[in-house]
Amino acid sequence: MRIRRVVTTRAGGVSAPPYDTFNLGDHVGDDPGAVEANRKRLGTELGVERVAWMEQVHGRTVTVVDGSETAPAEATDALVTKTPGLPVAVLVADCVPVLLGDPETGVVAAVHAGRVGARVGVLPAALEAMVEAGAEMGRIEVLLGPAICGECYEVPAGMAADVDKHLPGSATRTRGGKPGLDLRAGLWRQLAEAGVGKVGVDPRCTAEDPTLFSYRRDGTTGRIAALTWAEPE
């Protein structure tokens, strides 16, 4: 199998400010018609008939999908599938989108790993579900997508310490010397300790890159999508 991974940007859609323009989030106050048009264009550009979405709630629930679903998966923060050609998608605007895939079996996952979800173990839960679906830990390849970086993500000292207790390696200092979180660093360490085969990192910071949506930077804003799926070679 060939594992495909795609991360969108703000460009190329029809949404009006402050969601301009390629907002794919249907829960942020944007015109539903604009979101529907943007999602339709996404599918057309990717050459797929359908995309599996989820109603993200900052938890650790994982849902396995097969493409027969007619609505987004309810109250979940990770999607797993072994259906070839079915992209699973995660929406973000500072949280870490995690895309995972086993190229031998074609089992893939998209994970929404924000501060709360990362702290409570959404990524290990997704890995467990992938293994149950037939993936092998040593074959899984991962992309940690664009997210707010540790130099920008300032949090109270107690919060940084608490998250680091549950996600070691995530506590850091911001550019201004304040307590901060680097969730991608903590997640990378978690994946390595789990025995995942390969981990790549998209270094872009959502708060610094104007081509990406950032809730911390802008408040009311849209969402980019990170998607992955398997294609037969």
Rank of each mutant, 00 (worst) to 15 (best):
P179A: 07
L167H: 01
V96A: 06
A125W: 01
V199K: 06
V116Y: 08
L127D: 08
D164I: 01
R175C: 09
L181K: 02
P124Q: 08
D162W: 08
I148W: 00
V107L: 12
T211I: 06
A226E: 13
G150Y: 07
G195E: 13
V122E: 09
V122G: 08
A109H: 09
G158K: 03
Y153K: 00
L127K: 06
V111G: 03
A113Q: 05
H112D: 12
T105H: 10
Y215D: 12
G145C: 11
C152Y: 03
D218E: 15
G177H: 12
C152R: 14
R217E: 13
E128F: 10
G176Q: 12
V108Q: 10
V96N: 06
A110F: 07
D94Q: 10
A171K: 10
M159A: 14
I140E: 04
D202P: 03
T221A: 10
G134W: 11
G101P: 06
V142C: 13
L183I: 15
D164R: 00
K198C: 01
S214W: 07
R204T: 09
G176W: 09
P156C: 04
G121V: 10
R189T: 14
P156H: 05
G195L: 09
E141R: 15
W188E: 14
V163P: 03
G134M: 02
A110Y: 11
T105P: 06
R184H: 00
R223V: 00
V142H: 02
R115F: 02
E136L: 14
E104V: 15
G106W: 13
K198A: 12
R139L: 11
G222P: 12
M159D: 11
A126T: 03
D162Q: 13
A194T: 09
V122F: 07
A110P: 13
L212T: 11
L123C: 06
A118Y: 01
K198I: 07
A125T: 04
A126K: 07
A126S: 08
R184M: 00
G177T: 13
P168E: 01
Y153S: 00
L187V: 09
C205T: 02
C149I: 03
G169P: 10
A113D: 14
I140N: 02
L144K: 06
P124T: 07
G145R: 12
M159F: 03
E128R: 15
L99Q: 11
E154S: 14
D162A: 15
T172W: 02
G180L: 02
G138L: 01
T174N: 05
E154Q: 14
G195S: 09
V96M: 05
T221N: 12
L167A: 01
V98D: 02
P210V: 05
E136Q: 15
P210A: 08
G169N: 05
G121Q: 04
G121S: 08
E208S: 11
